[in-house]
Write a protein that binds this DNA or RNA. Structure first.
Lengths: 191, 191
DNA sequence: CAGGTCATGTAAAGCGTTACATGATTTT
DNA sequence: AAAATCATGTAACGCTTTACATGACCTG
């Protein structure tokens, strides 16, 4: 019954800690900036909210991985963070570690498809068409940032390409399968 | 700053509640059975742990969506659940609702690729190869249950097919991209 | 000067995993 | 007789979202 080991060991980085250290290494120095870039770029495979980012920045500071100093711009409070030596080495240590990477998916569309046998078969096709519509919206969002990402470094651009490719593949599957199911239903009605 | 609406409204089903009601409709009547089937079939896109399942079963009972009665088999305690009318209609209501479906992904491999620009370019290829290896293991797990799922109802089998298709697509992308990057690196070394 | 964005944060609640505990039954 | 599996559950902890709150600055 034992499930795989803990997600975070005390000496290591929490999930949000990982994206924060990386974003600081990428030159994003405030919680606000980090959140902006997360939303624009990693959101589709790694989200983070303010409620996590600000407390986590302080925990990282307590652990000596980042250093923050107050740098108000005008009368507006602002805390600017940078990596310490320890922070850089924690980041590199994480990037180079080859532990089983965390992978978690929660896809409500698939869950509805899974349970589609408790309703009539027509609902199954509807379920798949709803999944396709959702993925189509997601694809449009990813496409909207493609041109912008092309100008940046290769890492972020590659993850965007992968996200687009997977979404297209998902859409193709939905189309093919919906068509096939509809054809099968038509044939069985004829007989 | 406002983020998208709440994941669960009071009158609706919690994430784990959804999979539980569905599994009971599928004929799984104990917490243990539900967990077994979740691990065998929905785990790759919708997980659930005992620590969630047992308390949630009781909450569902309090809300009148399921009815449990003690049915010891031998001297071994056992609680058998079934859907109430309200539970059936909650399940159908959820299956037929067309709210934006929950979709959450956390992919550490992609996050490492995203940040691969903070290290040397060779690490990027290694990162992608690690992703491929991980997906290869996942694909083997899915393939292992394929024959078993083929005999069951179409819903579960379709989700498995989709999972396999997406994983294959992921692996293809990794292979193609790793090859391309390696070739580019070779060419730039020559010049 | 109103509305939007910049910027920071907290509190409460919900969600979820992990680790632990217990004891019966079945298999080897 | 030991080991694995069946079956149930709890407690502690960690993670995350949501909602709220504050106030400065900028644009039209």
């Amino acid at each position: 019954m034992a499930q795989p080991g803990p997600k975070t060991r005390p000496s290591e980085l929490s999930p949000t800690g990982r994206v924060i250290l990386g974003m600081i290494a990428f030159g994003k120095s405030t919680g606000y900036d980090i959140k902006q870039l997360v939303d624009k770029s990693t959101r589709h495979f790694w989200a983070a909210s303010y409620g996590q980012i600000y407390p986590e920045l302080r925990r990282l500071e307590e652990r000596g991985l980042v250093r923050g100093r107050s740098e108000p711009s005008g009368g507006r409070a602002r805390t600017v963070y940078e990596l310490t030596e320890a922070g850089e080495s924690a980041l590199h240590g994480w990037l180079e570690s080859d532990e089983e990477p965390l992978y978690e998916l929660r896809d409500e569309g698939m869950l509805k498809l899974f349970f589609s046998d408790v309703a009539e078969p027509e609902r199954r096709v509807e379920s798949i068409l709803a999944m396709r519509a959702h993925k189509e919206r997601k694809l449009a969002q990813l496409r909207a940032i493609e041109a912008y990402a092309k100008q940046g470094p290769p890492g972020p651009y590659l993850t965007l390409q992968l996200g687009i490719g997977l979404t297209e593949c998902y859409i193709d599957w939905c189309e093919t399968t919906a068509r096939r199911l509809a054809a099968e239903a038509g044939r069985s009605r004829q007989c």
